[in-house]
Design a protein around this nucleic acid. Sequence first.
DNA 1: CATATTTATTAAAATTTTTTAATAAGTTTA
DNA 2: TAAACTTATTAAAAAATTTTAATAAATATG
Lengths: 408, 408
Amino acid sequence: MLLTGNINGSKVSGNELKKFLQKKKILHLLYHHNTLSGTEISNKIGVSFPTALTLLSELSELKLVETYGTGVSSGGRKPNMYRLAGNSLFVIACELGRYKAKIIIYNSHNKAVTPILEFDTHIDDDELSNKIHENARKLIEEYKVDENKILGVGVTMPGLIDENQGINHTIKKEEYRNVRERLAEKFGKMVYINNDARMQAYGEYIFGKAKGHENAIVINWSWGIGLGMIINGKLYNGSTGFAGELSHTKFTDEGDLCICGKRGCLETEASSNYLVKNAVKGVQECVVSQLTVAFKDKENQLHPEDVIKAAKAGDEFAITLLNKIGLALGKGISFTIQLMNPEIIVLGGVISQANRFVLTPIQQSINKYCLDKISSNVKIVVSENWERAGLLGISAMLFQKLFSEIHD
Amino acid sequence: MLLTGNINGSKVSGNELKKFLQKKKILHLLYHHNTLSGTEISNKIGVSFPTALTLLSELSELKLVETYGTGVSSGGRKPNMYRLAGNSLFVIACELGRYKAKIIIYNSHNKAVTPILEFDTHIDDDELSNKIHENARKLIEEYKVDENKILGVGVTMPGLIDENQGINHTIKKEEYRNVRERLAEKFGKMVYINNDARMQAYGEYIFGKAKGHENAIVINWSWGIGLGMIINGKLYNGSTGFAGELSHTKFTDEGDLCICGKRGCLETEASSNYLVKNAVKGVQECVVSQLTVAFKDKENQLHPEDVIKAAKAGDEFAITLLNKIGLALGKGISFTIQLMNPEIIVLGGVISQANRFVLTPIQQSINKYCLDKISSNVKIVVSENWERAGLLGISAMLFQKLFSEIHD
DNA sequence: CATATTTATTAAAATTTTTTAATAAGTTTA
DNA sequence: TAAACTTATTAAAAAATTTTAATAAATATG
């Protein structure tokens, strides 16, 4: 029975455990390296070549690993290359937004085997687990995914989340907070949940702009300001899963009232909420702007993207608004740089698409608030695939977790 | 030749390397657990009991490990316990302050085998490496430490330090920045340098109040505000070794001029410098206070400890001053909590001795600036051994590093 | 283009490790 | 206090891994 069962449940003897751990390592390696030769694997896991080959052939029998052509050689016989079998393992990845959710199925090569399916829900939806399960079933049936080969379900969502306990502390009804339990019941599979910004950070680290940077910070700049950290090459969750709360940090004593109850949180002066609010205000006051022309008397249709579009078309009012939130976020980023000394900061989310209209003010704030020696090496870049980063991130995390629980 | 040489220098075959790594693991384990039984070791390093015993007997022959009595049993034969040999390995630990340095020698049980020797120097001292070497020699000779058994030298100092390269970027003359190289030349031994606050953090994590807390923050509250972080159970240095710069972070747009060139750094409103400056100002203005009585016309003799003493004796002026810097540091701590979600914050340094006179205002600031859910689980405690934490920390770090380079 | 060189793979021998069984040395309980 | 039960250690047998040698397959070179 493919990979199921529990190695901790049944007692395993020393050597069996050893081989189990070695195989786990191989799967892990192949997941991250696409293809590897027998020699490379033997070196990386610290066993001799013949032993590595034995392990690989056992994994091949389980249909988890397959050979894939030959590699390059610099003067000698070409090595056989091994990779994870493409369509023998799948995961379901789901990303919950404020009002909508996306769901998709990936294989172990991180290729989507279904398109993204969207549906309406939110974290306080009593029907949350039902809806996720229903829509997953739709995908499974429509695209004929072998259910036995689906190894787990990953869900990202906003809120203060403890990934170890599988609890979202932000959910209002206490009895509904244990999302992992609710979903595990429905699916009968391993379930992993974590904060959306953190999984986006992980996605950028494994596949995106933060790849190869052991100390990276990823910011999801949209309705709030989500922040995820990669520290020493690992995703950092914080001691109770609340790390990265920049959004509700006060950088001014005064300021607008925030949904959290405090005044002057960064969210009230650097989020897309604030951007739209001020754009609408300007339109209502009939400032000279393309936005006024386009949205007068239909202000509720004005979205962050419209402000960015206007700015790119040279609209001064829009540029000023973006500049303002750029300076504000820049202050928050500065503090983060001083404390964390990251290699790179990746900006994702709607506002990141404003590119130089926000990057310049951010850099300006950094110059003002950071010591030059610390900030001068930090790269600040815009994500290329932020709309998929969260889904890819939680998929990668699931495979990682699964490869730690596999057994013969 | 005891532990010297280099395993990377000479080619080692597969099995030799394997055994080398296993032995390294054993030394590592014994360093952190004091004593362990053969069974415990075999489980922890993932080999069978007979193999563990073989490795242990080989380490015993090298005089690195010794048996040490028997352990407890809950219904069976008592196991033989193993520990690191006490006086077969030593390290030299040195802590550089602003004007003075301390130096000491520890054995592998973290026991001091000499008292602390103090001498005058500073990071920009051209004679720095000479002075450290000279004073180390004094200790070695006076306390008859076998020089061949000294495995390395660790030095903590203020500044922006890249531990990997062994460079202190804060040193003025560029040709003197590579402190590790300068010292390695003198000593002919492995040298490790790192920032003082970070090594203090590590000391608190291995031996002090942060022990057992995988995500901890340690603050060295004295002339500046040093900050060290333990993240996922590892010391975090930052990508270029500059992590933890809270001291020169601006939390107000206005403010006093700081030595770094900016205005309003936390250092200008929360350090002992600021405390003394304001105390002196008060004395000169003849405020009603025990400090005025004691230090009028000899204000240059007023130290932070005097303000703390006065506060403990009920002096209102002193209490107000401490309250003020407590609120200011509390603001900095709040941001750190929001971002890092630590389990515990340990306060060390002179000012930490003011205890409740600073803990209360710090908590007040936290209540104001943090989300309750994040801050409510954080413990804020005062270090018990902060004057030794840095020395113990770098000693522990050295042993850790050394156990990674040992060979047969 | 054949030969030398490099690298990978396979097979057999040597070594190491694990497993199993037997013995030793304790603790708990009747 | 002796018998039953646990746990540790030792020793021998069994299994697994590494090493070595031989072979295969490619590249580089004269």
